[in-house]
Simulated scan of single mutants.
Amino acid sequence: MNMELQVAIAEAFAQAQHELRARRSAAALVWLERAHILTQRRPWLHARSHWLMLQAGWQLGDLREVLGQIPRILAALLFSRIWVPIGNTGRARISAFQPMPMSEELRRLLE
């Protein structure tokens, strides 16, 4: 993994955790969507993004988000190296199988 990608992933997780500690779950989810896209091919980091989304959903009282993240955590651990829907933000309101458009910045980081 290149250094620029490592820094971007670390920043996304750090900002998300900062927002979660401050109980700003909606802001945390924005950072976690970014982390999810950047870590989709790395099982542990991918699962971590879903775990933190579950925590954000819990803080928001969003049962759909909480329940939707549980199978995604398992799938991240089992299937990340086989297939992922590129650009998918990882939220429970989005199909886990739906590829999504990515910003040029994220595309560049993943090259």
Rank of each mutant, 00 (worst) to 15 (best):
G61D: 11
Q69S: 08
S25L: 06
I86G: 02
A12D: 01
P85N: 03
R42K: 11
I9R: 04
L67T: 04
I73N: 00
E19F: 06
A28W: 00
R72K: 13
R108W: 09
Q6I: 09
S25G: 12
A76Q: 03
A26L: 13
L45A: 06
G90S: 04
T39D: 04
E105L: 10
L20Q: 06
L67H: 02
E65W: 00
L45D: 11
A16G: 10
R24T: 09
R72D: 03
R21D: 12
L52V: 09
R108I: 05
L38I: 03
A22I: 08
Q55S: 14
R93G: 05
W44F: 14
L45W: 10
Q55R: 15
A16F: 01
D62R: 02
G61C: 12
A28P: 01
A8V: 07
L52M: 09
I70C: 12
M3N: 11
R23S: 09
R107A: 14
L67K: 03
W31M: 07
L106I: 12
L78I: 11
L38Y: 04
L77Y: 02
A27H: 10
D62W: 01
L54A: 11
I82S: 13
A47R: 00
F97W: 15
R42E: 09
A35L: 08
A14T: 13
A28Q: 02
E104G: 13
L109Q: 05
Q69E: 11
A75W: 13
L20M: 10
M1Y: 08
Q15L: 14
Q15Y: 14
E4P: 08
T89M: 10
H50C: 03
R34V: 03
T39W: 02
S49H: 06
R93W: 09
Q69I: 02
M102R: 08
N88F: 03
L78H: 06
A76N: 03
Q98M: 15
G61W: 06
L29K: 06
S95G: 13
M102L: 15
L109P: 03
Q55H: 14
A12T: 00
L5C: 07
E105Q: 11
R81G: 13
L38Q: 02
Q55M: 15
H50I: 08
W51K: 09
M100C: 11
V66Q: 11
R107Y: 15
A12Q: 01
S49T: 06
R91A: 08
M53T: 00
H46G: 01
M102G: 01
I82A: 14
G90D: 00
P43I: 03
S49V: 07
P99N: 06
R34H: 15
L38N: 01
S80T: 04
H50K: 07
V7A: 14
N88P: 08
V84Q: 01
R23N: 11
M3W: 05
A22E: 15
M102Q: 09
F79Y: 08
I73T: 02
V84H: 00
R93L: 07
R93P: 01
T39E: 03
W58R: 12
F79S: 13
E105M: 10
A56D: 02
E11G: 08
M100Q: 15
R23W: 07
E105N: 06
G87E: 00
I94N: 04
N88I: 05
G68S: 05
S49R: 03
V66L: 05
M3R: 14
A27W: 04
A96P: 12
L109K: 05
